[in-house]
Design a protein around this nucleic acid. Structure first.
Lengths: 182, 182
DNA sequence: GTCTATAGGATGATAGAC
DNA sequence: GTCTATCATCCTATAGAC
């Protein structure tokens, strides 16, 4: 991404960009901040649509993969640090910290409602989920960037990843009778 | 990575590099090929040291993380496609394909010996493991590149990731009595 | 706020002497 | 095979007119 290219895309000349951003890194920083906000907003949205229960976990994973798929370069900037020398500012990192605490809250709710049953504490369970999602997103972008969601290796492994979590953390979920008593 | 920088590191001037590589992409390609070979060799080594059994799974995950930790830029080149426009040549991709079939063989052996018990087929189980390892390596490099192996968020989540696999794929492994009959 | 012009560097790659 | 010299291009960023 060059300043010239960015300027062309928004219909101005490169030097005019410096009216809005004092450096290229400042532009990266704003991208990082906006990207994190957008990702958080989308996760909020799908969570509300899904409602409580195991579907929320599915929704989280699916929406993450969809986000990485729609904005591969943005995903890279947010989660893979592709730009040597660029580190998000403190303000931008607050957005990243917000994402993490959002995820904590989700996991905490799932634990409280019995949707997730594990001996891990909230942070540990959250990190396990984060690893899974990062692995899916990173693999997808690296190995099959163009492949439609749900297809290819990543698409096929996706349900098995979610299934792995369900098997380990809520083996009785498939059987409604076990849920009744709770 | 600039040609000038590479040349300086090996004690020659930049133009002399073109005696050995006809372009920068050719140099990337050789790095990719050598990197894949080294990674495969190390996985082979630790597998032999670990012997058969569940330890082999631990060894695989740990050695992968160690590799990504020791050679973060190389990991990036091999598994995150950080260079726009660079795609490994056919010969280099054969090495990557070899890594994948190595992993298939390992998973197949674990299934055959009963170390892993799952309804997934070999390729599906392999992809699940690949996702986990990629997630661990990618997160580590992005968020805590300098942190010693075993420490930090990645270090703490590592045993839980392996534990997740064991719980889902071999819940009886902790209990030796169940192993006896097999 | 936008532009033209340009500074000031770094880069990948080549020419040609030795 | 190695070097010096250099090309040609691209880049971020600034100066200054309008």
């Amino acid at each position: 991404m060059s300043m010239h290219g960015v300027a062309r895309r928004v219909g101005i000349k490169a030097p005019s960009l410096y009216t809005y951003f004092e450096s290229k890194h400042a532009l990266y920083d704003e991208l990082f901040r906006i990207g994190m906000r957008e990702y958080r907003a989308r996760l909020d949205q799908v969570e509300q649509d899904a409602g409580p229960g195991l579907d929320a976990l599915d929704a989280f994973v699916h929406e993450s993969l969809r986000f990485a798929d729609e904005h591969p370069e943005l995903f890279q900037l947010l989660f893979e640090r592709p730009v040597p020398g660029f580190e998000p500012s403190t303000e931008a990192m607050e957005e990243a910290a917000g994402l993490l605490s959002d995820t904590d809250s989700r996991v905490r709710r799932m634990m409280a409602s019995g949707v997730i049953r594990t001996e891990l504490d909230v942070e540990q369970a959250r990190d396990v989920i984060v690893v899974l999602v990062q692995g899916l997103m990173s693999l997808k972008r690296a190995n099959e960037p163009g492949v439609r969601a749900g297809e290819g290796r990543t698409g096929r492994v996706l349900p098995h990843i979610v299934g792995l979590l369900k098997t380990a953390w809520n083996p009785g979920a498939e059987d409604p009778s076990k849920e009744q008593g709770k």
